[in-house]
């Protein structure tokens, strides 16, 4: 694995930024200042970071309703994202998209998506474009276990296979499709990865809390896709720390379920413990990142709150695109 000190620090900063961003949105949403819904990604950071650190500017991703982590990992600017969630004019989508529709095409981020299973068809298009134009680009769709059941996802697996597209489908199985356990909603006893074989596609399952496992596996999938090997399905088994949406009372989860996961499987804690063990990276190095991230998030919230909302005159701007 090509993980030098610089790359490890980058990975930590990415995961820490996602965590602090989500923890802060959790707090701010409770004040009532944020409109609409938010679905938080805290706990799942290793998946977004492990995959996106294997991508470059040629590559595209499509996300889900739980998209903040993917946006940050693909390089979308954090202050713009926070402002977008607040519905402000300086937001990534000028305040008109909100949490579930953050997109930044310049960064290869094709959008969070309010449609469950909405991302996979998009990456088939992106993958076909990359293949046709010969850019060497790869397209990645993140879907949840619920999204993996959608016809759009299954059709996309088929399409990506028959066209041998440079596509990677990352199923982030956090155990619940909204409130329904994946064992009850996903065939093959809750294992989306087993569907890959039905499409003649390699499928890999891994511990989505383990950055190193995700990073190495994603690297192989990306190499394979770039070299004409075709699509891959990766299922990351992981956990979300918050409810399906903010305000979800989570009566479908065990009383200590999240507490136990936080104690035993926290991706940031596992990562920190590993990289500091042999002294290559020190606790002080990580603390420096923590401080920088905390300041960034604080500034993001302050600036987002102070920014103006889009004026009524902007209602129809940026809604339709002319080709």
């Amino acid at each position: 694995m090509d993980l030098n000190r610089q790359k490890l620090l980058e990975a930590y900063e990415m995961m820490k930024t996602i965590r602090e961003f989500e923890d802060r949105v959790h707090v701010e949403f409770a004040t009532g200042e944020i409109s609409g819904f938010v679905h938080l990604y805290a706990g799942e950071e290793a998946s977004a970071a492990g995959v996106c650190l294997q991508l470059d500017d040629r590559d595209k991703i499509a996300s889900t309703h739980r998209g903040h982590g993917h946006c940050i990992a693909k390089g979308v600017e954090v202050k713009g994202m926070m402002a977008e969630i607040y519905g402000k004019q300086i937001g990534t989508c000028r305040g008109k998209g909100g949490s579930m529709h953050i997109a930044d095409l310049d960064k290869g981020m094709m959008g969070a998506n309010g449609i469950v299973g909405g991302g996979p068809p998009l990456i088939c298009g992106a993958g076909l474009a990359a293949k046709t134009l010969g850019t060497g680009g790869v397209a990645v769709a993140f879907v949840g276990d619920g999204g993996s059941n959608q016809g759009t996802t299954l059709e996309s697996l088929n399409l990506a296979t028959i066209w041998n597209l440079p596509c990677i489908f990352v199923v982030e199985n956090n155990g619940y499709a909204e409130t329904t356990p994946s064992k009850w909603s996903v065939s093959l006893s809750g294992n989306a990865v087993d569907r890959a074989a039905g499409f003649g596609m390699p499928g890999v399952v891994l511990d989505g809390h383990d950055f190193f496992a995700v990073y190495e596996t994603a690297g192989e999938a990306v190499d394979r896709a770039r070299n004409g090997g075709g699509p891959t399905l990766i299922e990351c088994k992981l956990n979300r720390y918050y409810g399906h949406f903010e305000g979800d009372t989570q009566t479908y989860r065990g009383p200590d379920e999240v507490k136990k996961v936080r104690e035993a499987k926290d991706c940031l804690a596992l990562f920190s413990e590993k990289v500091t063990r042999d002294g290559t990276i020190s606790g002080a190095d990580l603390q420096e990142i923590d401080d920088r991230v905390m300041q960034l998030i604080e500034d993001s919230v302050v600036e987002a709150k102070a920014a103006p909302k889009p004026p009524a005159a902007d209602l129809l701007t940026d809604v339709y695109v002319s080709y």
Partner: peptide, 19 residues
Amino acid sequence: AAARDVRRLIARASSISIA
């Protein structure tokens, strides 16, 4: 969990579904 690791990707190793 056996037979579902990265070797499906790099080496065409077989998978055995839960079913």
